[in-house]
């Protein structure tokens, strides 16, 4: 991966698609008749997503990944912080009808569960015609057929009249991808696009995503808890833990020289598909469970599980440190001072 060195220069020249600063989302929950608490789903994160990049956000269940997607898509309002899309404030974009339409055209999504992200009472044809209807464009059967072929559902004619329950999981996810591509968006946000699929299908869908990206110069934001999958596709990776980003950097750095103990633990716990490897005999494990989002641990949120913690960790929140160009880590171990 020699491209990386020039890559970072190149990357800086690329247009910024999303610039996210200090983003927070708290959900209020009633804990009693008069008492309430806040679930800190996302607690101050920054992302810088550039054109043509595959930006991946990983983290365990409940770490706030989906909440981030929802805010990027304007489906939830941030409690605090700012999202800029192509230099403009997202809240402003969405408050105006015509700019909102433009945003919708440019930013599309694929959701985690292909079973519930397609309306069970619609045929594949209805579903794929919807984007054009919404944006008042002409619908030709040709276009819809092309879309289906694009995502590998051939012969397309056979799929057009089918209902969702007549498709397999992998086929459903292909329909979702086709729908997201219909309006020729710049950005596709994918929340766990392969989580519900079998291994062989996962590989196929990943392959499809890689092809489409190359063909249309798409920008992907991929959310996932399946770290190994991202290895094949990621340019940038952000690791979230309990509502915060603990490490962020070029994919190659994250996978080959991870610096944060949590990232390390995540990578270690991937079981290798090879009984001969030493790792498959020992299976290194990160002990403990992710913390409660209502009362996250003081100091470094990872400290109850961290094998490297020391006296500072439960008192002081670690600052973000750039350990390499574009590679930032929040851990006291790396704070030289």
């Amino acid at each position: 991966m020699q491209w990386l060195k020039e890559g970072s220069v190149l990357a800086n020249m690329r247009q910024t698609i999303f610039l996210i600063t200090g983003l927070k989302k708290y959900y209020m929950v009633k804990t009693g008749l008069f008492s309430k608490a806040y679930i800190k789903a996302v607690d101050g994160v920054n992302f810088h997503i550039r054109e043509g990049e595959t930006y991946c956000i990983v983290g365990e269940s409940g770490s706030g990944k989906t909440t981030v997607t929802k805010m990027l898509l304007g489906l939830e309002q941030p409690t605090e912080g700012k999202i800029e899309f192509l230099g403009k404030d997202l809240a402003k974009i969405l408050s105006n009808n015509s700019s909102a339409k433009e945003f919708r055209k440019n930013v599309q999504a694929v959701f985690q569960d292909p079973y519930s992200s397609l309306n069970p009472r619609k045929t594949v044809k209805d579903i794929l015609e919807k984007p054009f209807k919404v944006h008042n464009s002409v619908i030709e059967e040709k276009t819809v057929v092309r879309l289906l072929e694009e995502v590998g559902l051939t012969p397309a004619k056979e799929f057009l009249p089918r209902y969702v329950h007549q498709l397999s999981g992998g086929q459903r996810q292909r329909v979702c991808i086709a729908r997201a591509l219909a309006l020729k968006p710049k950005v596709v946000i994918l929340d766990e696009p392969t989580a519900a699929l079998d291994v062989t299908i996962k590989a196929q869908i990943l392959n499809l995503l890689i092809d489409l990206k190359e063909k249309y110069n798409l920008t992907y934001v991929i959310i996932s808890h399946e770290l190994p999958l991202l290895k094949s596709i990621a340019d940038k990776v952000s690791v979230m833990y309990a509502g915060k980003v603990v490490e962020e950097g070029p994919a190659e750095r994250i996978f080959n020289s991870p610096k944060h103990p949590y990232t390390l633990g995540l990578l270690e716990s991937i079981p290798p598909p090879d009984p001969k490897s030493a790792k498959s005999k020992t299976l290194p494990t990160l002990e403990g469970e992710p913390p409660s989002p209502v009362n996250p641990p003081k100091g470094c949120r990872f400290h109850p599980r961290c094998p490297y913690r020391f006296n500072l960790c439960d008192k002081l929140e670690p600052k973000e440190i750039e350990v390499f160009p574009e590679h930032r880590v929040s851990c006291h171990l790396l704070d030289k001072k």
């Binding site: 590989a203 990943l206 090879d274």
Partner: peptide, 14 residues
């Protein structure tokens, strides 16, 4: 099955 899981593990799905 084996090729798929290995390709995913090694990041060589392409």
């Amino acid at each position: 099955l084996i090729l798929s899981s290995q390709a995913i593990y090694l990041g060589e799905v392409k």
